[in-house]
């Protein structure tokens, strides 16, 4: 089992493993977010997804998110693993686990990390529908890079 706090892998993700990485004696709260492949988006049926990553850079960006989280929520520990390859409906695409001494911070830090993943981590999703395929990441989900580039410093996300 990998002990990397931030990882990209092409095999099914294990909640137990990611949560274990952040479990510590001084923490009473662990908030976990699990992103799964949803069948219907805006009424359109997804058959499967494919995720592709620029792996070394994606891991660096996940590590940066980790640093941001630990600065904003002192005492927190975060681990993130993102899946790549072909995923079926209900399979897990990403797991974020954050442990903190107190509960509120665990939720906040987790949500922050998820927002940042969607902004700066070089991972792309290809949707497979009954009538075609598309690499998403543009206006389908959000306006990308409103400032012309990803907000790599994180100033705009409080």
């Amino acid at each position: 089992m990998s002990e990397r706090l931030f990882d990209i892998q092409d095999t099914p993700l294990s909640m137990e493993e990611v949560v274990r990485k952040v479990t510590r004696r001084e923490c009473g709260a662990i908030a976990t977010f699990i992103g799964t492949v949803r069948e219907l988006t805006h009424g359109k049926r997804t058959l499967k997804l494919e995720y592709q990553a620029y792996k070394p850079m994606a891991i660096k960006m996940l590590e940066q998110i980790g640093q941001e989280v630990e600065e904003k929520w002192p005492g927190s520990t975060i681990a993130i693993t993102h899946r790549v390859g072909t995923l079926d409906i209900t399979e897990i695409a990403v797991i974020i686990a954050v442990s903190t001494p107190h509960r509120k911070a665990a939720y906040e830090a987790n949500e922050y990390a998820m927002e940042r993943i969607k902004q700066i981590v070089p991972i792309w999703k290809k949707e497979f529908w009954e009538d075609g395929t598309k690499w998403v990441g543009d206006q389908l989900e959000q306006t990308p890079y409103p400032k012309g580039k990803p907000d790599v410093k994180g100033e705009d996300n409080d």
């Binding site: 992103g35 995720y51 990553a53 620029y54 850079m57 994606a58 993102h82 695409a93 990403v94 998820m114 993943i117 969607k118 902004q119 700066i120 981590v121 070089p122 991972i123 792309w124 999703k125 690499w135 998403v136 990441g137 543009d138 989900e141 990308p144 890079y145 580039k149 990803p150 790599v152």
Partner: peptide, 23 residues
């Protein structure tokens, strides 16, 4: 991530990063 004014050097590894959609 590079700025528009950064200059490419021999030996660099460059990547095109279209809008990301992980998560």
């Amino acid at each position: 991530y590079a700025n528009e004014t950064d200059v490419l050097k021999d030996g660099d590894v460059i990547a095109l990063i279209p809008p990301v959609s992980g998560g």
